[in-house]
Structure formats: structure tokens, C-alpha cells
Simulated scan of single mutants.
Amino acid sequence: MDSSDLAGLTARARRLARAGERRILGIAGPPGAGKSTLAGRLVGALGPRAVLVPMDGFHLARAELARLGRADRKGAPDTFDAAGYAALLRRLRTPEPGTVVYAPAFDRALEEPVAGSVPVSPDVPLVVTEGNYLLHGEGAWAPVRGLLDEVWFLELDPDVRVRRLVERHVRFGRARAEAERWVARSDEANARLVAPGRDRADLVVRAVADPCP
């Protein structure tokens, strides 16, 4: 996406961030498409009128994934607390005067969720949330779409996206061969699950250049 696209998207987000009513904007898409980068840029442009609440804060902890036998599928739909994420969105939709809501974040260096990391003040008009499964219509993810005022689906050339994913895993400690195997087996399986949600989005954002990781 070029700077003019970003300007248009920022203007669209700014219209959602009008005072007086809490809105929630979702940014969905496959792994490596640049969702967190786009969300961060929007929130940075809007300043105190927006806050970023990532879906990845609802990853199950590593110890729980191991207990459930799902550690080798981390990132799949059933490796998140989807019901907890939906419950947080419901709470964010109806802010209580004087009450700050604390949302979790995800620490990529630790590969763990961190509770209470993101304060959401009741007077912030726009919450931006991003993640793979915002448009996934199955199981505990099904209610999420109805809790979002608008959802954008971000897509990127698959070859670029896969390269970015491999580099991300290497940057956070995996050997390159291991990173390539993980992307082929896990991340791309999740990308195929995410793809049908494109048709449920309010807007499809096509990245014509490689967004920053």
C-alpha cells in the first residue's frame, strides 16, 4: 500500500473515531499480511482518539498449549481464548464512565500473552483490533464479526507474505530451516482458514508494496 492509500484509510478510520460513541474497527487477514503494522500506523495517526487492542493477546500460554497437546499448532483457531476475546469486545463496546479496561497484549520476544498491558480509557472513541480470525465464522469465533463496527481484510502477495513470515520467525530465534518448515506447515494452514473471511469484510485492502514487518 502506498502513502495515498494509507491517507485514505486513516481518513476512513478518523470518521469512525468521532466523539460520543465507541466504535471498534477490525483488521483481519492471513499471517504476515501486515495487520499489526497497518493498525499501529492508524492508531499513531489518530493519537489519543484511538487505541490498539491485538487479538494475539488471547493466545493460550505455552504451558497450556503443551497440556492440551497443541503446542505444535500455535496460531491455529483453537490455540486462542476466542470466547475471552469476544467477551472483551463486548465490554469495550459499552464503556463505563470512569472505568479503564485493561486488555492483554502479546510479547513476541517471550512468545507469550501478557495480561493487563493495554489500558483502554472510556473516553477513547475508537478501538482498533487486529488478528487472523476476526472474520472466522466457526466455533467461538463466530460472534466476533458482529461485535465489530467495521472490518478490513488486508492481503499481500503470497510470496512476499511467506518471505516475511520466515524472516519474522528467524528474527525471534528460530533457525531458518525450522522457520521455513513452520511457515509451510502451520502459518500457511492458518492462512487457508482465514481466506474465506475475505468475503465478509467491509473493505479489502490490497498491499501493493511490502509493508514493514
Rank of each mutant, 00 (worst) to 15 (best):
P113E: 01
G139E: 06
R62W: 14
P119N: 12
H59T: 03
G84P: 03
P125K: 02
P77Q: 03
L135V: 02
A103H: 05
P95E: 00
E96V: 12
S117H: 11
R93A: 08
Y133R: 00
R93N: 01
R67E: 08
G84L: 07
D81L: 06
G84Q: 01
R62Y: 12
E138C: 05
Y102G: 03
G75D: 04
V101R: 05
L68V: 11
D123C: 06
R70F: 14
R70I: 02
H59Y: 03
K74L: 04
L134C: 00
R70Y: 11
F80S: 00
F80G: 00
T94K: 10
V128G: 02
A71R: 15
Y102D: 03
R62V: 06
L110F: 09
A83E: 14
D107R: 02
G75A: 05
V100L: 02
A140P: 14
L110R: 08
L88T: 01
V124M: 03
T129H: 00
D72A: 14
V124F: 04
A76P: 08
H59W: 06
K74D: 03
R91K: 10
A83P: 07
L126I: 02
N132I: 14
A109R: 13
A105F: 13
A105V: 07
V120R: 02
F106E: 00
A66R: 14
D107L: 14
V124Y: 05
A115R: 09
A71P: 10
L88S: 00
T79I: 03
A109F: 15
G84A: 13
W141P: 10
A103W: 08
T94P: 12
P97W: 08
E64A: 03
L89R: 01
A86Y: 10
V128P: 15
P97M: 11
R70W: 13
H59L: 00
R73K: 10
F106P: 03
N132W: 13
R108S: 10
T94W: 07
L110D: 09
P119M: 08
L135I: 09
R93Q: 05
V120E: 01
A87L: 09
L89G: 01
V100H: 04
V124N: 03
T129W: 01
G69K: 15
Y85K: 05
D107Y: 13
P97C: 12
G75M: 13
A115Y: 15
A61F: 07
S121L: 10
R73E: 05
L68I: 05
E96F: 07
G139K: 12
P125C: 07
E111F: 15
R73L: 04
H136Y: 15
E64P: 15
P122Y: 15
A115V: 08
